[in-house]
């Protein structure tokens, strides 16, 4: 019997695979392990303790940064998801229009443009607005995050729309549903898993952004990641490990939920 090419049977495959997984996950495992270190060091084990979690929890700067991060991520993912729903509808539920490919590329550009370029351009753009309006609040960060979160929210929503049976919407129209009613009663209820998945993805992406945030934030607007970056310049304690582990836990939870949500009701 002729066998098709099977990569798992090539010489060295197992070694390379193991090496990849070790490189990917060993550092993370170490980071998580040392978050429970009783001592001051992030590389010398001195016994198990939860003291760094307690200290991180009690740290007012960390509390501030966490709340700010969550507010920005909530605001940004909400805006990005709404925009992504509209964009997905316009690129799947219309008769093909001129410039549709261009629009598609523009929606996805944040994935392609180097983040540092976006960051610098936003810094300049927002500083012009700041001079003009005098406003220096959190909205700059929310809007900047929303912008680069759109493609992440857009992808699962678009996939969901494309996977939907178009006959259902036609059946809705056939049964006297006006376009708005068909969207509300038929498209939207089935789109929810995609919208939730897109929203969560956007939330996670916003939560750990450093580059754009670092450039756009005003003084005293540290988010959790930029706060951590700032700490690294001083002395590093396992407190950083503890925060990272907490962030990791949240991301894993959300990504797992995302996975199940995009899988169900197929």
């Amino acid at each position: 019997m002729a066998r098709s090419f099977d990569v798992t049977r090539q010489p060295g495959f197992t070694m390379i695979a193991i090496a990849c997984f070790v490189l990917l996950y060993l550092p993370i495992i170490l980071l998580v392990a040392y978050s429970f270190n009783a001592g001051q060091s992030i590389s010398q084990w001195e016994g198990f303790s939860l003291r760094w979690y307690v200290s991180a929890w009690d740290n007012e700067q960390i509390q501030d940064a966490t709340i700010r991060s969550v507010i920005i991520a909530l605001g940004a993912s909400l805006i990005a998801t709404s925009a992504a729903v509209l964009a997905a509808l316009a690129t799947t539920r219309t008769t093909p229009w001129r410039g549709q490919t261009v629009a598609f590329a523009l929606i996805n550009q944040p994935l392609m443009v180097p983040e540092i370029v976006t960051a610098v351009s936003l810094l300049i753009f927002f500083s012009m607005i700041k001079v003009w309006t005098g406003y220096t609040g959190l909205w700059y960060l929310v809007i900047a995050h929303a912008a680069f979160c759109i493609p992440f929210a857009y992808m699962p929503i678009r996939a969901r729309l494309q996977g939907m049976d178009l006959n259902l919407e036609q059946a809705g129209a056939d049964l006297y549903g006006t376009p708005i009613k068909v969207f509300r009663h038929i498209t939207l209820p089935q789109l929810w898993p995609g919208i939730l998945a897109g929203g969560m993805l956007a939330f996670v992406i916003s939560l750990d952004d450093v580059v754009i945030t670092e450039f756009v934030k005003s003084a005293g607007q540290d988010t959790l990641p930029t706060y951590m970056l700032g700490q690294l310049r001083r002395n590093i304690t396992p407190e950083i490990n503890a925060i990272s582990t907490a962030l990791l836990a949240i991301s894993v939870l959300l990504v797992t939920a995302f996975f199940f949500m995009s899988r169900t009701r197929k």
Partner: peptide, 30 residues
Amino acid sequence: YRRPVNTVFQSYALFPHMTVAENVGFGIKM
């Protein structure tokens, strides 16, 4: 949606997020 004409689709196109009764009632509800 303004034509007094209804269709039985080849794939049936039943609304998967509704019960049998909700499916049947959809048109008159609209």
